[in-house]
Design a protein around this nucleic acid. Structure first.
Lengths: 341, 341
DNA sequence: AGGTATGGTTTAAACGTTTAACGCGACGCT
DNA sequence: AGCGTCGCGTTAAACGTTTAAACCATACCT
């Protein structure tokens, strides 16, 4: 690989002049600039990013890690998210370093190592939770990061999130418009922060419609197919006049569990039971019936996250510091067929 | 961030001594070593990887890029693959830089830029094809890489691949054992190299069973749901005694298209028509009926790819240079129910 | 004429490491 | 006593950049 010295020699100037031409700083005569550019062209020279990084004390790398996807589950948006962040970063001459998070308890070690060795200039933190240790650590050491998701309201940091409350509200309103009154909600455990926002959307939309919260309609479970499947039987054990005719699930995986259990119980999904999922995983449109779901604006999240992070890295305050994006309800047959009967 | 100089000052030695302690080279007395280690501990020092990289002329980064997943399609194994490579790399003190491939024609530009700026020490090249320009380029400039997938047989390079031929053979044999004789194949277009290997598995298994290749059983289409859906109607237009009772599809997405089309045509998948997919996407087990599919040993592919690549980066010849792994047939109800009737 | 801007260029230090080369005292051998 | 050898440590150069500072014409101003 040619270095800046080779270029300097070729163009008969000092390395400083070459550097000035490269960075468009200093003052260089047109004639010399031409000569340098020709030499660069001839040698196919490109500046070494490592050497630049040492001098500038930056790596131009953004760290991004996610927990391994448990077997039998899928990560509906990972590929889109990585792709959009990688693309957004590249446009600004940054790159994304994806690393695997080990188990939560020594997760911080990996972050700390990246910070101390100057491997990355900042982090994207997905999948946040209340009292998130990663966020706590980064705030403590004052290292740049942007979270995809919210955390403790008292903590002041930059984040981008998708408005689960508004999303689920929209889903519930959609069901109400179709004539549903007995709408159930398959929620996540109490400790899920994201789940809280989404459940809040269910509650407020039901309340706004003047429907009181029925005993047994809200069920909580882990994000597991089997748990969703079983939840349906709990609902079916309710007295017929109190059985839900529609279900809003916190994720597509749960929605699939609901759909299959309903099918096995002899209900026709979309007619006897409306189902709404969350995430709009690519497969939802191929399910029978196709699943109505809330699509997250992932490309936008990626772009924004990166833009904000790079501002922070450069010491700018990143405005705005918090962004809440609305998901979009994609209506398909799992709800559309359910009649206003 | 403390530097090696700070440590040296703290321990009252020269920076060279600190470096020797860090790398376990040179000869350092136990007493001095202790002193240095204490200083390192006290300051929380970790060597700056950029500075190390400049000195060693390496980035300890592995580049990995994939083409964006088209809308309405899914990448069944991306998350597992990235995770396993990231993990394997980290164990060897390397990291994975994921970047987004632009359109194929200027894809090489991105690779060339990474090579010239010394951003990465090597590449993982997924999704290979015949006459792959990325491979051609890297061979030409002699830059280390390992491909996930094969390419021109005349080209000599390191690769890891999953044996599509053996996989589809296993699928066909499984169907034969169940009593199927009229087995169709939904293949990819001629220009798909991976598709060729898989189709070859179909042909050889059929041949070995003494079944002649029936006109119209093999259909080719792009990897699109709609195309698979339509293919079923082509088969159903065959005379009843020549209609396939089983289908092997090149991907899970195609298999889903087949399942849905069969369902809509009044056939019961698993009984009237057996279906096999490829990839074992996480959702397959939740389909109705659950889809029999070929699971790729992704974790192993990731581990091997990284191990081989790092050997190459260090100038070792990487033994073995080519690895073919067998996929495993995961039998589910989409075939299991089809009776030997 | 002498002084001061100004434009174009070079010199050299710095970024944080590694490592070859050297220095030096102690030890063992003849 | 003189001479390697060895163990332990330091000095200094190097990796490929950027950039402050210095330098040197030339031109301009009084």
């Amino acid at each position: 690989m040619p270095t800046i010295k080779d270029v300097a020699k070729e163009a008969n100037v000092s390395v400083a002049t070459v550097s000035y031409v490269l960075n468009d700083t200093g003052s260089v005569s047109d004639e010399t600039r031409e000569r340098v550019l020709r030499a660069i062209e001839k040698l196919g020279y490109r500046p070494n990013v490592i050497a630049r990084g040492l001098q500038a004390r930056e790596s131009r790398m953004i760290g991004y890690s996610w927990r391994p996807v448990p077997p039998n589950q899928f990560h509906p948006i990972l590929d889109k998210f990585i792709h959009s962040t990688a693309e957004a970063a590249a446009r600004r001459d940054y790159h994304v370093l994806t690393f695997a998070s080990p188990q939560p308890y020594d997760e911080i070690d990996v972050y700390r190592e990246m910070v101390r060795t100057a491997r990355v200039d900042g982090f994207i933190i997905p999948n946040t939770n209340l009292n998130d240790r990663r966020i706590r650590y980064l705030l403590d050491v004052g290292f740049p990061f942007v979270a995809f998701g919210r955390s403790d309201p008292e903590w002041d940091f930059a984040w981008v999130d998708v408005d689960g409350t508004a999303g689920v509200q929209e889903a519930v309103n959609h069901l109400l418009e179709l004539g549903h009154q007995r709408i159930a909600c398959l929620a996540w455990p109490e400790n899920s922060f994201t789940g809280r926002y989404r459940l809040e959307g269910y509650r407020s939309a039901m309340g706004a419609a003047g429907l009181r919260e029925e005993e047994g309609w809200i069920l909580r479970c882990e994000n597991l197919y089997r748990a969703a499947y079983d939840a349906v039987h709990t609902w079916l054990a309710l007295p017929p006049d109190r059985q839900p005719t529609a279900v809003v699930a916190m994720s597509d995986l749960l929605a699939i569990g609901v759909m299959n259990a309903a099918d096995d119980a002899g209900l026709e999904v979309g007619r006897d039971l409306a189902v709404v999922g969350f995430d709009d995983a690519p497969v939802t449109e191929y399910l029978r019936p196709p699943l109505t779901s809330l699509r997250q604006p992932i490309a936008e999240v990626g772009e924004l996250t990166v833009a904000m992070l790079i501002d922070l890295i450069h010491g700018k305050p990143s405005s705005p510091a918090q962004v809440l994006l609305k998901p979009r309800l994609i209506v398909r047959d799992s709800t559309a067929l359910s009649a206003r009967s």
